[in-house]
Simulated assay, not measured.
Amino acid sequence: MSTDIEQEKRALRAELRERRQLLSDAQRAAAASGIHDQLDALVDAHSAASISCFLSATTEPGTRAFVTAAVQRGIRVLLPVTRADGLLDWAVADEEGDVAEGLFGLPEPTGEVLGPIAVNDVDLMIIPAAAVDLTGMRLGWGRGYFDKTIGSMEKCPPVYAVIYDSEVLDSLPREVHDQPVTGVVTPTRTLTLSPARH
């Protein structure tokens, strides 16, 4: 494992995290509204009856209104629950949307927890990212949860990462374990980047 690549990723994550923290409340609200519209259209385009998504933290593009609305539309939404062993459990989102602080201080659902293989049944995965490049390579936040999940799935559905417009980059450093995504959803557009992945 190249330490140069690790250092490059670390520096890039720090820069992206700082950029996200500088956004105003108004910018965040506008982004969340755009994300909601884009994700609704993506779900419809895939005729998805069951999806996985995530509960956005303060600095992430907002997904919570979308999750609530999807549940109200009758879509089954699985939300990730982090485990100490590096795997993800899943919980079914409900209309109450009760949230607790997870392992890394991130928001997680409080409902009944299902095991890691529960996600194998979804039609579409919507995951967090720090950035994605034009080949579909995703830079996560360094813990590897989603790379492990996607890499272990027998039949992986389309995977879209939710990021801000400025986080679609020309290229990203990559390591062997890094998993590409099908595309990205930003507040203004949805891009399919590596359709051949599935």
Rank of each mutant, 00 (worst) to 15 (best):
S52M: 06
A26W: 02
L23M: 10
R13Q: 08
L191E: 12
A161S: 14
A91R: 04
T192D: 03
T58A: 15
S2A: 14
S47I: 03
L172M: 09
L106T: 15
I51Y: 02
I75Y: 01
C156R: 08
A41K: 14
D170I: 01
E101Q: 12
F104H: 11
W141F: 11
A118Q: 10
S56V: 09
L88I: 10
W141V: 09
F54Y: 15
L106C: 08
V113S: 03
T192Q: 14
L23E: 11
A41P: 00
G144N: 12
D85A: 09
R17N: 04
F54A: 06
V181I: 10
V119R: 15
R17M: 07
R10G: 05
S2C: 11
A65W: 01
R174I: 06
L106Y: 02
L55Q: 11
A11M: 03
L42I: 03
P157T: 01
L191A: 07
S24N: 06
L193M: 08
Q72V: 03
V168A: 15
A93N: 07
R143T: 13
G142N: 02
P61E: 07
Q179T: 07
S152G: 15
T188A: 12
P80V: 05
C53H: 07
L55C: 11
P187I: 01
E15F: 01
V122T: 15
L23T: 10
P61R: 04
A45E: 03
D89L: 09
I127M: 10
A70I: 08
V176C: 05
V132E: 14
A129Y: 08
Y164Q: 05
G144C: 09
I150V: 13
G151Q: 14
